[in-house]
Design a binder for these strands. Structure first.
Lengths: 343, 343
DNA sequence: CTGAAAGCGCTTACAG
DNA sequence: CTGAAAGCGCTTACAG
């Protein structure tokens, strides 16, 4: 510590925290302190600081899998936005496992994060309720939990799915399968499923439950193959609606392996758009989400909440956009396609 | 604190840290402590612990951009491996900016990380030298720094680039351009460039410096368009070798826009393989890197170094693999292609 | 077998 | 205008 100056650490601390003038410390002394601090490249130990202040200037981020481009991109914007306000971020991947997530939250709390951003795998209110009771600031992204008021920034899943399904319907597809991921209690999955069902009904097409399939998060490859084979070969499905990007990628793989042509043999739409879909053959029609915005808004909400824990929580729903490419034959509309897909 | 038991916090601390028996605390007391700890869901404050112990069980990760799938995947495996040993990871994106990176290292040090994993943007030995002097454990990934012994895990860039170029040569391409990113002082870029040059020379093709182009990290889109146009239209380039995945993606975009066919009008190879390339049309031939292995090995090296700072540093070079797909016409070898590409 | 005390490096209420 | 002291929540050397 800089008692090389013959002053107390109190004084140094005061000056370094910008409370110099406020506390009436002579400008001369302030200058001296600042100067030496710079020269010594002195930075206060954040650990000690945090311990004293009870705030670590760190936020925790838990997502299903940081290597999924969807979350990676959100993580990037969170890091960026948080950084502007002097916050660092610690990330963890829950792998859609609630128990793992519980541990991670504990870990993060032990590390005294000031707040949490969660794409939570929790289905029950209980866990979230606990967070509220513990009064740790947090905001839910991507997935909200029904029946409990929290900060959240999600996307209009219902509309996205409705639009995607309607798009398929407009192109005269009738046998449209839905491929979702388990755990399927997650809000977005349910909302998307509802959008699909309602669009079907509104289009006069009955919802067939055997065209709705679930694939588990940790065994996508094997199950996808099985399900698609069954769906396409035995249930004459004409179009596929995948509920997230990894599902679509994996589906694409299987379709290739089966030597099926898109959209002639099978059409498809993806919820969640990634670079790959622009370059795939053919380019994939997808519902695109405003990832940067999700991250940015989440940080804003969180920092507000940290500063002002008593304020009422706010729910943000961001719009999605359908990017029509060629995986449904939208730009083709050749009679043979139409003929084939009509029922 | 659990003085509900009528014992001292010394005792509690001892028991919780597994030093109970070693210190001869009665099993009965130990049980009682453990029990209450569980019941109260008591977890020691890591902040205080770290302050006392001088170790935070946290590692810092700095990469150019966490949203690049290349780094995201490495981050995932780092998180995973580190987690197994009770370490959490804090990440930051340097955007290839050395000054930014310097700040981040400082930030991370202030936060008392136990060690650093860096895909560094530094070109000078100086910065790395400083890390060594400060005796903060670290390991370099993806990029090593010439002339200084540090822990590092990188990939055989020279061989990857050599193979890719030779592959192109074997298919009778002669006018092969190299697209790299600036800053181009980064070791991998240089090594890859050398691999390209040597393969050319060994194949009896002179190295033409005007076929080697640089694109800056923060302005890829605009520059790519300009460079490719010039290269293809004015320098009759037949094949493109992109030095990383974002370059390739951006290149693909421009090629599409120019309505050029791959590989008939222009062939290409990418260093670094991503999902997209399997599904692109046509699928892209690429040099694939063992991402998980990079992350895992980096963590191992780092934890070793933390435990044993005096040990000599170790350099790991992992092999790469060329995945031949169809962007060079490898599977076609139609006479017209061969004829067209011969010089 | 168990506990009182010191100290990790800060910040801030209090006193002068 | 400046400083001594307490305290954030731990761990550990020391004493009994």
């Amino acid at each position: 510590m800089a008692d090389q100056l013959g002053v107390s650490k109190t004084l140094v601390s005061l000056v370094l925290n910008g409370k110099g003038t406020e506390r009436g410390i002579s400008l001369k002394t302030q200058k001296r302190v600042m100067h030496l601090a710079k020269k010594l490249n002195y930075n206060p130990n954040q650990m000690a600081r945090s311990l004293r202040l009870g705030s670590s200037k760190t936020i925790g981020l838990i997502v299903a899998d940081i290597s999924n481009i969807f979350f990676a991109q959100i993580a990037r914007s969170i890091e960026d936005e948080a950084g502007k306000f002097g916050y660092s971020v610690m990330f963890m991947s829950s792998e859609e496992d609630a128990e793992r997530e519980r541990n991670m939250i504990q870990l993060l709390q032990d590390r005294c994060v000031d707040g949490l951003i969660l794409a939570t795998a929790f289905n029950e209110r209980k866990d979230i309720q606990k967070l509220k009771e513990d009064e740790i600031p947090f905001v839910l992204i991507d997935r909200s939990i029904a029946g409990i008021k929290t900060n959240s920034v999600v996307v209009d899943n219902y509309k996205g799915a409705y639009d995607a399904t309607k798009h398929l319907l407009n192109l005269n597809f009738r046998r449209i399968a839905l491929i979702k991921i388990t755990p399927d209690y997650l809000a977005p999955i349910q909302q998307r499923t509802n959008g699909y069902k309602d669009a079907l009904r509104d289009g006069g097409v009955p919802v067939r439950n055997n065209l709705i399939r679930e694939i588990s998060f940790d065994n996508v490859k094997a199950e996808m193959q099985e399900q698609l084979k069954n769906l396409i070969l035995e249930h004459s499905v004409q179009a596929l609606f995948f509920l997230n990007n990894s599902l679509t990628v994996s589906g694409l793989e299987v379709i290739n392996k089966l030597h099926l042509r898109i959209p002639q043999d099978i059409a498809l739409v993806s919820f969640d758009d990634i670079d790959l879909f622009r370059f795939a053959y053919p380019p994939i029609t997808a519902i695109s989400q405003p990832l940067d915005d999700i991250g940015r808004k989440a940080v804003k909400l969180l920092l507000d909440d940290i500063k002002n824990p008593k304020k009422t929580k706010t729910q943000i729903t961001l719009p999605v956009e359908m990017i029509v490419r060629r995986s449904c034959g939208a730009f083709l509309k050749r009679p043979d396609v139409l003929g084939k897909t009509g029922e």
